[in-house]
């Protein structure tokens, strides 16, 4: 769909055509140009998460990161008071009228599954709490701060949002023919992703990216040239890419952390590097005994094994290459 600037430049009949195409039923109720633009903007907003990848100039050379499997980890925490809450008097549970009669369970709240945990799924029939609240205030659609911000949401996925005044965009696009806005993701000097976006869209998720993307830039790209509008450094993603040695440090609890630099400088903090052999031996033992690779652990009721040596039941290699959720940089 055209971006906001193009919408403003369009005639009403052109906008009607767009509305027919993108809004479908109900578009004929939109009478004025402003109504048409507002509805189309809303449509763009609604589809903001579906940024359509444009032609990728330089495909990522690294393999996309493996996404973490969803199961079997518990979904965060118990539903606490702050989350699910049954309230308000929506319909379904009839009164238990008769004095002394136990409440009838004939039409209980429909709990989809059983038990505390799934009780978090508030029965849909009764669940929507309604406080006597007034409408929440409207917030600015943008602040005109002229910036792009990018942050990793998880492995391979960047969340990018941008906020530009129309003047900034028009100035950047001056002289460009048939231009459009694109986000470019860089790793070093290399473009690893280019995605067409709309100004009013405001935010997008870019997926299957390398985990060491360095920056994201917004460009106005025309058929005759392209121009950089703004860029943002991407904060480091998941873990340090600095190779580090296995070290053990001895820190006295009584030494406050703010004194640590001085203590370390004086040599009072003991740091040692265990031998490769001892590391291997420890990892082999721990791999068989630790439970992180299996929720039940080797001590579980169905007890595959109890004790020391890494066994066939353990998916962990004997040298203890602990499972990772994503690939490490090749430098490590």
């Amino acid at each position: 769909m055209a971006n906001l600037l193009n919408l403003v430049k369009m005639t009403v009949s052109e906008l009607r055509e767009l509305a027919r195409k993108y809004l479908g039923r109900g578009h004929s109720r939109l009478k004025t140009k402003n109504e048409l633009i507002a509805a189309l903007k809303q449509k763009v907003s609604d589809s903001r998460a579906k940024a359509v990848p444009a032609k990728t100039k330089s495909p990522p050379k690294t393999k996309p990161m493996r996404k973490k499997e969803a199961a079997p980890r518990r979904s965060k925490r118990a539903p606490t008071a702050r989350a699910a809450r049954v309230s308000s008097g929506s319909p379904p549970v009839p009164d238990i009228g008769a004095l002394g009669a136990p409440p009838k369970a004939s039409t209980p709240p429909k709990v989809l599954n059983e038990g505390f945990f799934v009780g978090a799924q508030v029965p849909t029939a009764i669940a929507r709490p309604r406080s006597p609240i007034h409408l929440a205030p409207a917030l600015p659609e943008g602040y005109g701060s002229d910036e792009v911000v990018a942050i990793y949401r998880g492995p391979g996925t960047l969340f990018v949002f941008w906020d530009f005044g129309e003047e900034t965009i028009l100035a950047a696009a001056q002289g460009l023919v048939d231009w459009r806005l694109v986000l470019r993701v860089y790793r070093g000097a290399e473009i690893v992703r280019e995605v067409a976006v709309e100004l009013v869209q405001g935010r997008a998720y870019l997926e299957d990216l390398p985990n060491d993307s360095a920056r994201v830039e917004l460009h106005a790209v025309g058929t005759n040239a392209s121009r950089r509008i703004a860029g943002s450094n991407v904060p480091p993603s998941f873990q340090s890419d600095k190779p580090s040695l296995l070290r053990l440090a001895d820190l006295a609890w009584d030494t406050p952390l703010h004194a640590l630099p001085r203590t370390a400088k004086s040599g009072a903090v003991r740091v040692r590097e265990p031998t490769a052999e001892s590391v291997q031996a420890i990892r082999a033992r721990v791999a068989g005994a630790a439970g992180s690779s299996s929720p039940l652990g080797p001590w579980g009721e169905h007890g595959a094994q109890v004790g020391g040596v890494a066994g066939a039941a353990s998916p962990v290699a004997p040298w203890g290459a602990v499972r990772r959720r994503f690939a490490l940089p090749s430098s490590r």
Binding site: K68, A70, R73, S75, K76, R77, Y152, R153, G154, P155, S237, F238, Q239, S240, K242, S244, L246, R247, L248, A249, D250, L251, A252, W253, R270, V271, R325
Partner: peptide, 24 residues
């Protein structure tokens, strides 16, 4: 920590206890 002052030094990765383990 008082009784076991010697521990490994490492840089931790991004994580949370939410579903999926990151910020989703």
């Amino acid at each position: 920590l008082r009784e076991n002052p010697e521990n490994q030094v490492a840089e931790l990765s991004l994580s949370s206890w939410g579903e999926g383990g990151y910020a989703g």
